[in-house]
Write a protein that binds this DNA or RNA. Structure first.
Lengths: 359, 359
DNA sequence: CTGAAAGCGCTAACAT
DNA sequence: ATGTTAGCGCTTTCAG
């Protein structure tokens, strides 16, 4: 007598669940046919398909994707690493990615890196062990080990929120350098001639700053007063930044006629702090000083005065990243390189203004 | 001659990767020992452990959690379903959950329900097929099928952002009814005697509204002018809501002395719309009308005037939910029921004020 | 269009 | 402290 299989002993091994074998037996077909009903329904005759579907319904069978993934070597899982979800620009990106991928029956595995390349590397280790079909990263600043590992796996990767000449694989973002330069051009065109800068020591933001200053220097404006803080940007730092810049504003307070100072902040949060401190000190924005931020966070339009800023469309980045990845997953062989610049928008609100031409 | 195993043929079946067998052979141990080095390092003698770790390092072995999960029937995956990530309160909750779980070596699988119980049910299907070790849901409004399925699986479930007498399993949230009542009490104590309500047809928000009105009625104040809109709350709806309430404000505009109208909004976004419309019409807040919102979204403190509201600490909910789940996962047998009310805070800002006692 | 056989890579259970 | 055996539940491959 052959030993009975599927005895469902109560151990950690068994899930007591209905399996394809159970469904197959009840439907009078082979397990593989049940599998086909779920994965390639077109290849199954309608009558058989309906029969199987009815049994699935009756038994309450829930497929086991774990087993399926192991056998097929595809997980329908995409891992997304984001620095921080409490920043609305990233949650927009993430939501867009998840929505677009869900439409194509992919699920999203989240990792939060906290802006740390080292933490990202650890996350990647865990993530790779789950064999995602694709990976979407934020930024292009990864450890060399991360880059090597990712390239070695051959898993499609999309880097977002930045541009680089040496992407791991695909790329959807914008150029921090271009933002710095375009902002400088724009503010010069508006008539500003005096500049200061408030930033935190985030490398991406500093690339905007550097580019901003570089362009000003080319136009003969240097040096720029640069207040650099440490860590994630806070309102408090913006306030302190303005306090440090007070000497630059003093001459006007004394009645001397002069151009307003333009304060370039690498984050809306810092800029918001500047506005707050200015209000508390009776410094008139934009008359005594102009302020521009970065991100167009949801409060930017509602500060007083409303904040001029650089808008990044996080949702758009997410959608494009998802689309690029899906394209590749659909046709892994036709791997054209993807490097999409989604650009940005300079948003003029009340915290800056066009100045009358100089005498 | 025995047929050779592990020939790594180039097919969809093989991943060409290093496996535990390869590592085991090179380290001169059995595969299970390699497994133990990764999962129960304490059970392996230090010398063997180091030997195995070195081989792992040298070969660049990346473990396959898919296979591990199938064999051990544990995935170290927690599924989280959120209505919408672009709402900061939910991204706070989600981030807190992901961070806390990551500390305990669990990864997070995201699902976005778009506030739809039907969509949630479909998501659940996909999610259950991945056999998560735990599930965290937003709200308690699920389809009956979802509830049954979840109970049937025996997977630990945490419902959040609400209270109910009949949870699926664990519960971490607050009572919408209590909020309505407490808000009514508070505003009555401040001296308000006339009330209106702007809401959207979200069931959770309407439970706050109903409770608010019920309490006012008990104090002899009825009926309350109730403006109900459809869909997700927008600033625009708030503006239109105030327009509809203009007749209630007219007598005061005509010079008659009377109490300001108190406008209870089920969302900060609606309340913000009211403030915006009021500003554009020269209606004085809080003198002619008081406004209170819900959520304490990040703009609430920065509107003009600053918005009074009901604060929910989304991060706290997320952390507590994660902790409750981890506790259960650590000791599945000692399953005490969890039903934690995290409460809320009434935040008084400039859009409401204590009125002088009536004559 | 359907099926039989053979794993995918790992770990539970039971030795030793 | 380590090893042997036997799957976990599905899908690829190769035949009909």
């Amino acid at each position: 007598m052959p030993k009975p299989k599927k005895a469902h002993p109560v151990t950690a091994r068994s899930t007591h669940g209905v399996t394809v074998f159970d469904v197959a037996k009840l439907a009078g077909v082979a397990p593989i046919t049940v599998s086909r009903v779920m994965n390639q329904p077109d290849q199954v005759k309608e009558s058989t398909r309906l029969k199987v579907l009815r049994v699935i319904e009756e038994t309450g069978y829930v497929r086991n994707q774990i087993a399926g993934s192991l056998a097929s070597n595809r997980t329908r899982l995409v891992a997304v690493i984001v620095p921080m979800l409490t920043n609305p620009v990233f949650s927009d990106t993430f939501q867009a990615i998840a929505s677009r991928l869900a439409q194509a029956d992919y699920q999203v595995l989240l990792g939060i890196s906290g802006y740390e390349a080292a933490q990202e590397q650890e996350l990647l280790e865990v993530i790779l062990s789950r064999r995602p079909d694709g990976i979407i990263l934020t930024g292009t600043l990864h450890t060399e080990i991360s880059r090597r590992r990712l390239r070695a796996t051959g898993i499609p990767v999309v880097e977002t929120w930045d541009m680089t000449d040496d992407p791991i694989d695909m790329l959807v973002g914008f150029s921090h350098e271009t933002i710095g330069e375009r902002a400088a051009r724009h503010l010069l065109a508006q008539g500003y001639r005096e500049f200061a800068l408030i930033e935190v020591d985030d490398p991406r933001g500093m690339r905007r700053s550097d580019s901003f200053i570089r362009h000003l220097a080319r136009r003969g404006i240097a040096p720029v007063d640069r207040q650099t803080f440490t860590g994630l940007p806070t309102l408090e730092q913006g306030r302190r930044g303005l306090v440090k810049l007070l000497p630059r504003l003093a001459p006007l307070a004394a009645g001397a006629s002069r151009q307003p100072l333009m304060i370039f902040c690498t984050s809306d949060t810092l800029a918001h702090g500047v506005l707050t401190e200015a209000a508390s000190r009776g410094i008139a924005i934009p008359d005594q000083a102009g302020v521009i931020g970065f991100g167009d966070m949801n409060f930017a339009a509602h500060t007083f005065p409303a904040l001029s800023t650089v808008r990044i469309d996080g949702g758009h980045i997410g959608r494009q990243a998802a689309i690029a990845l899906l394209e590749r997953l659909k046709d892994p062989t036709g791997a054209r390189p993807v490097a999409m610049d989604v650009g940005f928008t300079l948003v003029d609100r009340a915290s800056t203004r066009a100045l009358p031409p100089e005498e």
